[in-house]
Amino acid sequence: MSVSPLVSTDWLADKLASPDVVVVNAWLPPVGAPDTAPEYRDKHIPGAIFFDVDAISDPASDLPHMLPPTHVFSSKMRRLGIGDGQTIVVYDGMGMYSAARVWWTFRAMGVTRVFVLDGGLPKWEAEGRPLEDMPPVPRGERHFSARLDHGLVADRAKVARVLEAGGQVLDARSRGRFAGTEDEPRPGLKRGHMPGAKNLPFPDLLEDDGRLKSPEDLARAFDAAGIDRSQPVVTTCGSGVTAAILTLALAVLGHDKAPVYDGSWTEWGGRDDTPIAKGEA
């Protein structure tokens, strides 16, 4: 990646009226609060398109918000008015949560000009920038062609091969969940982690206001987790959402091909045939 995957609020404010820039409000309720209402109804960046992660997922999977087939994704993007060649800027209401997942989703679907708004809605609002509480003017359908980038997506078999070969798998869950000392928020999942995986809780990469930390601080966090950034890294978490924050942070540091394990612990920890370890990495 030749440029940063992040854009600033200043940059977006300057480009907001550009017809080639599409702003996307990423939405996914926190796993512990599934009934949380989207903030989009009350306030969003002018013209932003609402992107419901669960609604734009694989309807045939029993795992949460898995990547949809490319033809399904293409169809949904066309209806939203998102097309080939546009510059997509993704943000969320927490500062950094579901935006990274949606950024990764677009990249996995072959989009190269997609970015995350650093600091998201909290920073935009704190700076007194414009907001609206009405649906944007409907966009006409545009042609969108999704082409899956297999190098950015990991399934259970790939993760197992990486671990067996002594490769790097990095888990974004909390230290207690990784060690197996805390229950999983989703019922029916075992405690612990994949044998050989390392742990870097995603909040360690964020400032208090939701922005990603400086590149220097990000590098120190990956180094402290025992990650060799010159080698391949697969990221994982509970359900493939906060793993994308690790992948985004790695992209900031120039490591732009860190695949996300889409099924993550919801798949691995919900099976009887997957090995599980407990304790710290």
Score class of each variant (00 low, 15 high):
residue 3 V to L: 12
residue 5 P to C: 06
residue 6 L to W: 12
residue 8 S to G: 11
residue 17 A to M: 05
residue 21 V to S: 02
residue 23 V to C: 04
residue 27 W to K: 00
residue 28 L to D: 00
residue 28 L to M: 07
residue 29 P to H: 01
residue 30 P to V: 03
residue 31 V to N: 03
residue 31 V to K: 05
residue 33 A to R: 02
residue 37 A to V: 05
residue 39 E to W: 05
residue 42 D to S: 10
residue 42 D to N: 09
residue 45 I to N: 06
residue 46 P to I: 07
residue 48 A to Y: 03
residue 51 F to G: 04
residue 52 D to N: 14
residue 52 D to T: 09
residue 55 A to R: 13
residue 58 D to A: 09
residue 59 P to M: 11
residue 60 A to N: 06
residue 61 S to K: 00
residue 62 D to L: 07
residue 62 D to K: 14
residue 63 L to C: 07
residue 64 P to R: 04
residue 64 P to F: 06
residue 69 P to H: 12
residue 70 T to W: 13
residue 71 H to Q: 08
residue 72 V to L: 09
residue 72 V to P: 00
residue 74 S to K: 01
residue 75 S to C: 10
residue 77 M to F: 01
residue 78 R to I: 06
residue 82 I to A: 11
residue 83 G to M: 14
residue 83 G to P: 00
residue 86 Q to L: 04
residue 86 Q to P: 02
residue 88 I to T: 10
residue 88 I to G: 15
residue 91 Y to Q: 05
residue 93 G to F: 09
residue 96 M to W: 01
residue 99 A to P: 09
residue 106 F to M: 08
residue 107 R to Y: 02
residue 113 R to P: 02
residue 116 V to F: 01
residue 118 D to M: 07
residue 121 L to T: 10
residue 122 P to C: 04
residue 123 K to D: 11
residue 124 W to T: 14
residue 125 E to P: 01
residue 128 G to F: 00
residue 130 P to H: 07
residue 130 P to L: 12
residue 131 L to R: 11
residue 134 M to L: 13
residue 134 M to E: 14
residue 135 P to T: 03
residue 136 P to F: 03
residue 139 R to Y: 11
residue 141 E to V: 12
residue 142 R to M: 12
residue 142 R to A: 15
residue 143 H to Q: 13
residue 148 L to P: 00
residue 149 D to Q: 08
residue 151 G to F: 01
residue 152 L to S: 07
residue 157 A to S: 12
residue 157 A to W: 01
residue 159 V to F: 14
residue 162 V to T: 15
residue 164 E to L: 12
residue 172 A to M: 12
residue 175 R to V: 09
residue 175 R to A: 15
residue 176 G to F: 09
residue 182 E to D: 14
residue 184 E to C: 07
residue 184 E to P: 01
residue 186 R to I: 05
residue 186 R to G: 12
residue 188 G to D: 06
residue 190 K to G: 08
residue 194 M to R: 14
residue 194 M to C: 10
residue 195 P to F: 11
residue 198 K to S: 13
residue 198 K to R: 15
residue 199 N to A: 14
residue 200 L to T: 07
residue 203 P to T: 01
residue 203 P to D: 03
residue 205 L to Q: 13
residue 208 D to H: 13
residue 208 D to A: 15
residue 209 D to K: 09
residue 209 D to S: 15
residue 210 G to P: 13
residue 210 G to V: 02
residue 214 S to Y: 14
residue 216 E to S: 15
residue 220 R to G: 01
residue 220 R to Q: 13
residue 223 D to C: 06
residue 224 A to Y: 03
residue 224 A to C: 00
residue 225 A to N: 10
residue 225 A to R: 06
residue 227 I to T: 15
residue 228 D to I: 08
residue 229 R to C: 10
residue 230 S to Y: 00
residue 235 T to H: 06
residue 236 T to I: 04
residue 237 C to H: 08
residue 238 G to K: 08
residue 242 T to A: 07
residue 243 A to V: 03
residue 248 L to T: 03
residue 251 A to I: 06
residue 252 V to F: 00
residue 253 L to S: 04
residue 254 G to L: 05
residue 259 P to K: 04
residue 259 P to Q: 03
residue 259 P to N: 03
residue 262 D to G: 06
residue 264 S to P: 10
residue 264 S to G: 07
residue 266 T to I: 01
residue 267 E to H: 11
residue 272 D to N: 13
residue 272 D to G: 14
residue 273 D to T: 02
residue 273 D to M: 02
residue 276 I to N: 08
residue 277 A to V: 02
residue 277 A to T: 00
residue 277 A to L: 01
residue 281 A to P: 06
